[in-house]
Design a protein around this nucleic acid. Structure first.
Lengths: 225, 225
DNA sequence: GCCCTGTTCGTCACTAACTGCCATAATGCC
DNA sequence: GGCATTATGGCAGTTAGTGACGAACAGGGC
């Protein structure tokens, strides 16, 4: 890990992230309540207790204020992949994670931010501004996935085969999230069946042509050239 | 096909598309020459010979002006998939299309719009505004891919298995395009090796876990549940 | 404790992306 | 040609977003 070299009164990276998340939270709430058109930058600023100028310092666009919140769903997927130990298959790891996760948070209590994220994702079907935020968030996730997948496959980070797999995996995470979101908002509480990491594991495996999914056995080459 | 029921002085769909493409072309040229920040809506309007007001009638955002041009690359991929006859494997079809395509346009003459599209795609690495346009274009492509893939797999259009495949295929098209774009702009003219539909076919096949790729043999079910 | 340095934040003025509104020109249908 | 509908232009108005400058603020060195 590179120790963050910050000097003077510089904001720590974690504090910066926290602030962005807070802004995003308030902005997203307003977006959901009154639509993105109807919410002004001033409203967001007032809701979070900052000046409007500061909002634009942390986000380049009104719509991009939604990104940190909306990214939460897919972020869970990448943490799942990050924590994937080499000696397990993806499905085994997913199963283990699920049991651990359920005990920690309880099956019924879905964090407010996650609900909000799903709401904005489905709202994105109608509001192009939110759609762009969602796609940009997933794009960021895809980049974060690249080194993870490269290491898993024993490939160099800039190997030509990495990016297709990362893109496919990110796409799998995205549609899974969209699916869960509409199912959750439309009907009751199908979380127990839908949100299982097992589904994610399956989706990622097929999206990568089976490349990302097995426990590590043979190292360097696995797909036919 | 539903005959488009248009009345009064309504613009035909094809004319509308042409106009949007023309606007997009001029906007994209300006974006490339002077950056997207530095180009104003007025400049775009003047370049295409319309009033600024009309520009905003056809595009909701300055950056979205780039979408039609930037989508050209991936659009070729979806036309490839659309024209895919059932009795061929994807690779066979790709090979056939390639020979046909080469004869038609000549290998050396890459259309100006395509060059422009690739330039904007690589520029999108640095300019978030262009990145959103590119992602939105690919998102549209993904939606167009849905019915094509559904029909190919003999599934209902709203079957749960369609969207993951469409997303994965679209992602494959996207990274292929990005790869071609940077290779083309960075170095000389690696088109003969990179732009082959054969690579697209391979990418789509693996991204869909092999589901989209075979010639049609058995109809209804093919992946294990 | 103090100064010094670099950073964040607020205020204000300003630019430019968009939007409504109304009159006018184009277009398709009869 | 006449009519209905739509696309367009011009203009006023709103609001997203930026630059500049000063004040508050967090560290490090002493």
């Amino acid at each position: 890990m590179t120790t963050t070299r910050r000097r003077g009164g510089a904001m720590s990276e974690v504090r910066r992230r926290r602030l962005r998340l807070e802004i995003s939270r308030e902005a997203s709430r307003l977006f959901w309540r009154q639509g993105v058109e109807a919410t002004s930058g001033d409203q967001i600023a007032e809701a979070v207790g900052l000046s409007t100028r500061t909002i634009w310092r942390h986000f380049r666009t009104k719509e991009s204020c939604a990104e940190p919140i909306v990214a939460r769903g897919v972020e869970r997927g990448v943490t799942l992949l990050r924590a994937w130990p080499p000696h397990l298959s993806l499905e085994e790891h997913a199963a283990a994670e699920r049991t651990g996760h359920v005990r920690e948070a309880g099956a019924d209590a879905l964090a407010d931010d996650d609900r909000l994220a799903m709401r904005l994702v489905v709202l994105g079907e109608r509001e192009p501004a939110l759609r762009t935020a969602w796609l940009m968030a997933c794009d960021r996730i895809e980049r974060e996935l690249r080194p993870v997948i490269a290491e898993r496959l024993g490939l160099a980070a800039d190997d030509r085969r990495v990016r297709p797999h990362a893109a496919a995996a990110a796409a799998a995470l995205r549609v899974h999230n969209e699916h869960v979101a509409v199912a959750l908002l439309a009907g009751g509480d199908p979380l127990r069946r839908l949100d299982t990491p097992a589904h994610l594991a399956r989706a990622v495996r097929t999206a990568t042509g089976g490349a990302v999914g097995d426990a590590i056995a043979r190292r360097p080459g696995h797909p036919p050239p």
